[in-house]
Structures are given as C-alpha cells and as structure tokens.
Nucleic acid binder design. Structure first.
Lengths: 232, 232
DNA sequence: TCCATACTTCGACCGTAGCCGAAGCATCTC
DNA sequence: GAGATGCTTCGGCTACGGTCGAAGTATGGA
C-alpha cells in the first residue's frame, strides 16, 4: 500500500471517455484547438475546457497560444508511446469499441501513431527494412543496420542529421491492430514526413488514418517488398 | 472520435485509488487473497470484492479458488509490464504519492517488479551483464550475448531450458525509480528466483521491496560489478 | 469603437460509482 | 450437525466528478 508512483492519477485522467477521445484525436500528431477537441470528445466547449485544464495540469498535454486560438498537443512522445501501449493492451484484451465503424479498415491499413506510420503498412515497412539489413532487430529493440545509411539516403533521409538530435533514432512501438512492432523514433518520423512530402500519402481530416494515392502506394510497396514472411 | 481500442475502460479500471493500490500490491508477484487485497487497498472486504470482480471482468486479474480462499494474481505479465510502464511515466511527470514514507528508500534500492528484480540493484545487474557481454543491448532491446550461456550456467541457470518456453527470454523493463532499463523476461525471473533460493535475499511481507542479507549482498555486488559507469 | 470569435469561469444539476452494514452462500473444522 | 472463516450480494447512503447554460475575459477584425 502506498508504494511507488501514483498510477491512479494518470489512470483517472485517461479513464474518462471524453478525455480518452481527445487524447486519441491528438495521437494524430496535429495540434488541435479546444473547439476541435470538444467535437472529438463529443462534449461542449465548456466541458472540454475543464478537461483540457486537468490534462494539462497532469502534464499529459501542452498548449501553445496563437492569436485567439489555443492549440493543444500531447506533451511529448512519451505520452504518445504510453497511449499506444495502452491501446495495444486494450486491443489484446478485447476492449474494443462497440461498433467497429466503416473507418476501421482504413485505420488498420495505415494510420498516424503520434508522428510515425502504424498499421499494416507500418509493420510491413519495418519487416522489409529488417529483411534488407537496413535495420537490425535484436529482441524487441531496433538499431540502424549496416546498409541503413545508404538505404535511407536513397529515400532522401540523412541519418547523420537525425543522430544529432537527442531523441532515439530507432524505436519499436507495438502496433495495436497488428500486434507486432512498427518503427518509431526520429527515423520513423522522418520516413512518414517523406511520404507526405513526396505526395505518396496524405492525412484525412479528423482521423488518424493515412490514405495512399494509387501512385504513392505503388512506390511504397515497391520500396518495401515482403519476400518471405518475416518472423516477429 | 471513436477510433481504435477503448483506452478509457482500462484507464478507469486503473484510475480508482483503491484498485490501483491492489494492483500495485499484486506487482509483488505473489497471489493474494481478497482479504489481503482489501487491506492493501485500504477498504472493507465488501468493497474490495466488487472492485476485484470489476478487475477480473476487465481481464486485468486472474483468480484461483483454493479451498475457501480465493487467490488473485495479475492476469499475465502483460499486465505487469503495463503497470510498470505507467509507473515509469507517472514518476517522470512527478505524480508521486504525497508522503514518501520510510519504506521508499528500500523500494528504490531493490524491489520485485511482478517476477523480476527492479530498482537500483536491478539496473546495476543489467548494466553489469551488458558490460561483460553476457547480454547484448541494441537500442532498447535485449538479447542473450556471446558469453551469456556460460555466465548464467555459473549462476545456476540453464538458458536452453528457458528458451523452450514461449515467453521472451530477455526483455527490457523501464524502471520507474531509476528511469533506466532493468532485465525482465524469463531470464529476469530466473535470476530473481535464484537469489531467493540461495538465500541472498528475501521478500518483505506486504511490500514489493527486496531485502538482501549481508552475505547475499556481498555475493551480489561481487557477481555484478560496476567498473565504469555504463551509458544508458 | 463595436462586434465577432475563441475560450474560461461560475454555478447549479444530476448520475454514477464508491462505500459500508447487514444478510446470504460456500467451505472448512470440530 | 454446529460453528467459524472467507467471500459475495443486496440495499441504501453519500460524494465526487462530469455536464451544460450563462456570464465573463481575451484577441482579432471592421
């Protein structure tokens, strides 16, 4: 009793449906205003305001004032990682929403996980990168592989630049829909940003799902082939 | 909105202080009766009973009937891992209990994390194992190293036996007090069990903290030396 | 200056969930 | 059987937290 950190506090913060919906919306990685988050949570602006104040006090959220707007984001990627891991856990226990909804398949195929690519395509990409030796996988850890710098330079990413930041380059993130790892970290972020830049894919408004263009999808699948099923 | 798994459900389960205390108590790895858990939660037996029913329905807990006792444990090590990761997150945000209490230092030094060793000593052990090449660390992932099988055989652990189980051999677990990784997985479990078997250490009743005997501590420190500070 | 927009604070309402006393089962001991 | 122990269920109380309407504050634009 009364041992260690207070998990009840953050459990309670995440445990309210309206707050959970707002946090999930912010997993899309974009900064959202209080009004947008109110809609995401299915509540009025006043109620959202009190929730947002609590989430900020609990240091799950950060806010940035810009003119008369107030933009909220997840406080940092530790929050994103925590949420995704809870999602993975919840999915594994069958704690799913009641109605799967029409957007569900798109979400499972490809979605934004805070700032990197998740879903079927996210898992496929990591599998392919491991198979070609661009990334080394040891246990559940990831590191840049022998052919990594060369591979990513071809895609248009300078690994040396990324290494300069204090954020980990490669990080595995458990995918809740696939129940396998996908690539997070600054490299995962850079890859997703590149796909957007090249016009291969785009976000959808108000959702975490990522839509590939026909052309972009062709490029993506060619770039990350799956020859033989790779073991987890 | 309404995307993905329902994190609010499990957030709410963990979010109640009484339930959180009971879950924390079960992080000690031992099966506890409803009466013991009621004491851990600071509530009466009736209230505890309803809480336990909810936790079981949410598949966070498993129960085993034995005579007129009902023993509860965490449903599996995924629950333990989730709780420890939330603890790490909470500790990082300053969500600590109000009064640190006298047991806190012992808890930070060495404690049980579901079924393996955590705290200062847990982190020290992993650092030492990595330094000697018994375990390889890549990113945040762990794997058995070149000198691993030999090292662990000396301690009295047959790695081949452990590999037979479907549970991962090595797994890193973020330590909430040290904010660095310690060793989980079947190997972590086997090591802690060995320390208990050899009489080097013992659990304390009603707490997660692990107390080393003077003799056991000498052996432990000799077995896992820290020569140079190892980078995280 | 005046109004519109974005958001917060106040106040009141209400439902739910936690809580416990008492009673009801179940299991073991004698 | 009778009684003790471990736990669950029932019923009713209470309080906290979520909710929104209304009013208040800040920023931007006309």
């Amino acid at each position: 009793m009364k041992e260690g950190p207070d998990i009840a506090q953050i459990g309670a913060l995440i445990g309210d449906p309206a707050r959970a919906n707002m946090l999930t919306a912010l997993m899309g990685g974009k900064a959202l205003t209080a009004t947008e988050l109110a809609a995401a949570g299915g509540i009025t602006l006043q109620t959202a305001s009190t929730h947002l104040a609590k989430l900020e006090a609990g240091r799950l959220l950060a806010q940035r004032k810009q003119g008369r707007h107030r933009y909220f984001t997840l406080a940092d990627d530790a929050v994103g990682k925590l949420l995704e891991s809870i999602m993975g856990f919840a999915a594994g226990r069958g704690h799913l929403r009641h109605q799967p909804g029409p957007k569900e398949p798109a979400l499972r195929k490809a979605r934004v996980c805070y700032d990197h690519l998740a879903g079927d395509y996210g898992v496929r990409m990591l599998d392919s990168l491991v198979a070609t030796g661009a990334i080394d996988a040891v246990g559940d850890g990831l590191a840049i592989g022998a052919k990594g710098e060369e591979t990513f330079k071809c895609i248009g990413i300078d690994v040396a630049d990324l290494k300069a930041s204090r954020r980990p380059l490669c990080r595995s993130c458990l995918d809740w829909s696939e129940r396998r790892a996908h690539l997070a970290g600054s490299l995962g972020k850079a890859l997703l940003a590149t796909f957007f830049d090249k016009g291969w894919a785009r976000r959808t408004a108000g959702s975490r799902s990522v839509i590939f263009s026909p052309d972009g999808e062709r490029h993506f699948l060619a770039l990350f082939p799956v020859e033989t099923p790779v073991a987890a």
